[in-house]
Computed example of a mutant assay.
Amino acid sequence: MADETAVETTGLEKSYGQVKVLAGVDLSVPRGTVFSLLGPNGAGKTTTVRILSTLVRADAGRVRVAGFDVVRDRRAVRRRISLTGQYAALDGEQTGEENLRMMARLSGLSRRGARERARELLERFDLAGAARRRVGTYSGGMRRRLDIAASLVGRPEVLFLDEPTTGLDPRSRQSMWELVAALAGSGTTVFLTTQYLEEADRLAGRVALLDAGRVVAEGAPADLKQRVAGRRLDLTLADPLAYARVAERLGGAAVLRDPDRLLLGVPTDGSAAQVRALLDEVDPERGAVDRFAVHEATLDDVFLALTGRTATHRADAPENPVSPASPATTREETSRV
């Protein structure tokens, strides 16, 4: 693997019983970047992260992280990575400062070094004012910031963030995005899994769309959106009959179909001439379309075009049928410290 590559997988496969979770995943993540793995629940995102972070062994394929094979050089990988799962792995009875000092001591720092590292991280993550408060009194956003701070105690080369903003309010999510961008700016490679399309669009220089255990598309967000269209014309139909009639006229050109909302979407360049032409084509009688709107194409449009459903669709079966590790176990097993 080249020195500039932080994560590389080739032909990654994993099954749980009869359930094929990963079916040949190839990924390449440059160092010092934010890479996002997108997909619905059940697509294989968390299983991929667990394999990359040495928690689970793949059935087939080759995986290298931070320059080391995750099977042969497991300990070397663990010394260079950190994992923050979907739920904060913190001791609610300790203060924020105590949590970070404990992690620093476990990572081998002296008492003085642990105090300095904790103070540095508390200031960096805007938690100095709450340093001596019990973590159990923190808000959700504060807990997530502290959890990521704990992930950075050992100065990892690669940080895995598994859906880090799930359950956060918009303001806390915005704050988290700023922190993630700053991490990449300081040289840390961030491997992010998320169901929030806006999150990946905002943070990632490169994304991979995962569906049913396979990568269905990969590239820069702007490039992927251009594969669908620069913009999308959304048509809200007057009634179910009008919806059915226009949907038939559009055929495979429709990249969005939502019969519950009587909504159809079709690619467009956004120009007035093309919008008028499309409206005349699908609604020559001028009675089927109730209203319309043009907006920029999104990653969800890309996912819908490639898979037939949105990236926030919840799969029928869970991605990982086995019992998940508790936050504390996850922290310990990945050797975050």
Score class of each variant (00 low, 15 high):
Ala254Trp: 02
Arg261Asn: 12
Arg214Ile: 09
Val255Gly: 00
Gly187Ala: 14
Leu209Lys: 05
Arg202Glu: 11
Arg155Pro: 01
Ala212Asn: 13
Val255Phe: 04
Glu163Pro: 10
Glu199Met: 06
Asp258Glu: 14
Leu197Met: 15
Leu262Gly: 09
Arg261Lys: 13
Leu235Asn: 02
Trp177Gly: 11
Phe160Gln: 01
Asp147Thr: 08
Pro240Trp: 02
Val135Cys: 11
Val215Met: 04
Asp234Pro: 00
Ser151Met: 08
Met142Lys: 08
Val153Ala: 04
Val246Phe: 01
Ala181Phe: 01
Leu264Trp: 03
Ala184Asn: 02
Pro164Glu: 06
Lys225Tyr: 02
Asp234Glu: 13
Glu248Ile: 04
Ala200Gln: 01
Gln226Lys: 12
Gly230Ser: 14
Leu209His: 03
Ile148Ser: 07
Ala150Gly: 14
Leu256Trp: 08
Ala242His: 09
Arg261Val: 06
Ala229Thr: 09
Leu264Ser: 07
Arg257Gln: 14
Val255Tyr: 00
Pro164Asn: 07
Ala208Met: 08
Leu183Gly: 05
Asp234Val: 05
Asp234Ala: 11
Leu210Tyr: 00
Arg202Met: 10
Tyr138Gln: 12
Asp223Asn: 11
Arg232Phe: 02
Arg145Gly: 04
Gly251Trp: 00
Gly252Phe: 00
Pro164Ala: 07
Asp223Phe: 08
Pro156Lys: 05
Asp147His: 10
Gly252Asn: 08
Leu197Asp: 00
Gly252Glu: 14
Gly252Gln: 11
Arg134Ile: 08
Leu263Asp: 04
Ser186Arg: 13
Val190Thr: 03
Tyr196His: 14
Leu262Arg: 13
Ala244Pro: 01
Asp234Phe: 15
Ala149Ser: 04
Asp162Tyr: 04
Gly213Lys: 14
Arg214Ala: 13
Ala150Val: 09
Leu256Asn: 02
Gln226Ser: 14
Ser139Tyr: 10
